[in-house]
Design a protein around this nucleic acid. Sequence first.
RNA 1: GCCGAAGUGGCGGAACUGGCAGACGCGCAGGAUUCAAAAUCCUGUCCUGGCAACAGGGUGAGGGUUCAAUUCCCUCCUUCGGCACCA
Length: 874
Amino acid sequence: MNEKKGGYKFNEIEKKWQQFWEHNKTFKADDNDKSKPKYYVLDMFPYPSAQGLHVGHPEGYTASDIVSRFKRMKGFNILHPMGWDAFGLPAEQYAIQTGTHPAETTSKNIDGMRRQIKSLGFSYDWDREVNTTDPNYYKWTQWVFLRMFNSWFDEKQRKAKPIEELPIPEGLIETEKQKYIDDHRLAYESEMPVNWCPALGAVLANEEVAGGVSERGGHPVIRKPMRQWLLRITEYAERLLEDLAEVDWPEPIKEMQRNWIGKSIGAEVDFKIETSPSHRDNEILATEDTEDTEDTEIKDKIRVFTTRPDTLFGATYMVLAPEHPLVDCITTNDKRDEVKKYREEAARKSDLDRTDLAKEKTGVFTGAYAINPVNEEKIPIWLSDYVLISYGTGAIMAVPAHDDRDFEFAKKFSLAIIQVVEPPDAQQQEQVKQGKLCFTGDGTAINSGQFTGLQTADFKEKITNWLEQKGLGKKAINYKLRDWLFSRQRYWGEPIPVVHCDKCGIVSLPESALPLRLPDVRDYTPPQTGEPPLSKATEWLKTTCPQCGGAAKRETNTMPQWAGSCWYYLRYIDPNNNGRCCDLAKEKYWMPVDLYIGGAEHAVLHLLYARFWHKFLFDLGYVSTKEPFKKLINQGMILGEDGQKMSKSRGNVINPDKVVADYGADSMRLYEMFMGPLEAVKPWSMQGLEGLERFLQRVWRLVIDEETGAPAGSVKDADANEQTTRLLHQTIKKVGGDIETFNFNTAISAMMILTNHLAKQAVAPKCVLEPFILILSPFAPHIAEELWQKLGHSKSLAYENWPKFDPELVKEAEVELAIQVNGKIKDKIIVSAQADDEEIKQKALACVKVIAALAGKQPKKVIVIKSRLVNIVV
RNA sequence: GCCGAAGUGGCGGAACUGGCAGACGCGCAGGAUUCAAAAUCCUGUCCUGGCAACAGGGUGAGGGUUCAAUUCCCUCCUUCGGCACCA
């Protein structure tokens, strides 16, 4: 710490300016300022944890703050808010252990993290703070859910519409009508096998399970059928895919979303089941697929989905998923026991088992056969869990010669392998022919009847048309994306605002009943049945049906943590509106989010879910843009000083509070930006941090006399010399450009170069210092405000104009050129920036070292690159 | 296995559109200041050889295109992130 009176005392300065900004509401965003263009800068809001802020948080927040402050000075009306994604498991688990209400824990944690965030001097408009656990907030989360519940998706117009507009087929009786409506709601209930984690006492979404264990905690997960709420995100698959073209996001992130959506184009093909009297004794009602009315008639066909209809001639057997509804119907009596056993095993398997056993294929023959529609061949029908009931039709045609999984299965069970595609590579041809290699690429068709000789792409198209003409199949598209499992068996989440009525079924609450508040309970432990903790809130549970007025029970499931974060960016726009989630005019003014900064860990889930909600709200006219986030930037992770991920157990966690206390917020901000590219993963270094504090000390001493605390004697109202002026203008240009492209590290480097130069000058002209302080201010706002004030300005610099650079003054008068002979540098010359090629050439050839290097040889070619180099080729 | 990103001094990293590799910071070494230290300032710092001038090598490895490659193309290796029987 500096004992000198006028030294750089960051503690005092930072506190002073933070208070100043808060009292003056310096960063209040104005909804009605039509004189400026708007710019919405959003951070991914944090979960308020008991551990508090992590050094990773300020990284993204600093970057977004720099952009906010920069754009503000550039004359934009800035919306830059912060809030809390406060529902979540840790507070609930703490409640289970200690009995403390999660609201209490949450509020305490929020206070702690708010203090920490404020200590870093970000230019947030704190009047817009939101908290997902606030009933005034989750009222609208529930409201969106109700809108989904009361909407259906019109496939023709590809948009959601109110459920009242759903055309209902003629001749349905009342209960059928109700079922028809329920089956079309965008939020719907379904009994389905879910990922049940006994240790967490919770059902997890697919994306919360990794490798058979829970992502959080690593507990084993098993499959268990349960009543669940789902959101029909699959209806939006195509639009979610298409509209990625419209957003300015990192390409890898878009690619991850595309992979997650997983669109496949292929064909659905019907295979006739060869019937024999032995399995006619148990009829089944219908296939699972009820979308087409024609399907309900089919009992003697198996429909498969394939992306390779061109390999139909190579289909030597079929495989059904163990859960496929036709299994009972087709299994022959002699195979019945074996099939039953296999199905039971498959049902019992947890996801962990399935992953573990993935190496070794299992399966069982049903005794039944199907007829390959293209060549009338009789092929066996097998059962295996490598076919998933939830994808495609739950059944496949197996082409072992051209599909790795089928190949493996065929080898294991000694099934026929017929090659129908000839690989272009000669080496592969022989191996595939001998059945030693499986070839999955494109090639030329063989053994394929009238299609033999066609190339894969051509074949696919021709056979799809052929199938369609013959009524054997049709073009089909499938997505990996599944409907979003939206219910959680937890206490600390938004209650789902519906009731269960014996008479009326599931009935949504009227909007006037929102928010449906979480009841206060004493016992947060989930019943071991897998029922949610809310099922213990007996008083709360009992209610009346909004439709018939009779007794009804409330829904006990709550929403997942993702729910609140799906629309928070809209609430910031109008955080206190009691009549709407967000005022339409304000939405139209502020949206879309111009810049969204956050961690790449949300590449698919949060960003896909939020896009889905946004599109839904767009369909119903509540928002005006197709996409919520125009530009997205991911900050990389900050590792510990040992290059490892920071964790308590490794003891390498850096505490931001301590960094701020010891070095100041400005140093911390600067260091986090100087470490390297924003998106990169990079290790922390305390010594590196000290370097940035030294830089700020130098800046301080450039302006302030440390003895007196007043401006230094060298600070004068004088003109700058030519060199200084040029460097200043170059720096203004560089820093502004680098902020626009998020290269904060090189922007800081440029300011260091300017500082180093100024430190060597006897005079520090105000006309240089002032613009320098302004361009430094987005990075280190506290010291900048203080120096600005010390130089005699009475107003905050937050709304000063960003300094302009003069392109003429940026240009160098003279440039140094490297002179190469055959690509090797031999000498350097200095020429005027205006020198023409011929002049440069002559000078280069006149260099003593060049003449020596040429050794009398004639140059074949002389290449002159202006302001770069000359290469003489002999 | 598939998809994606990245490999540059002792360390973090820089290099426009193919044009002087190593900006800036850290560390280290030497010096100034000091009774001494901290702080500060100055000088040096890719590797090898040389007192030096200088010469040679050098951006994960190998090849190619080019007057010129960290940058473009091919093959391979390593690390990190994502997905994982999706027919």
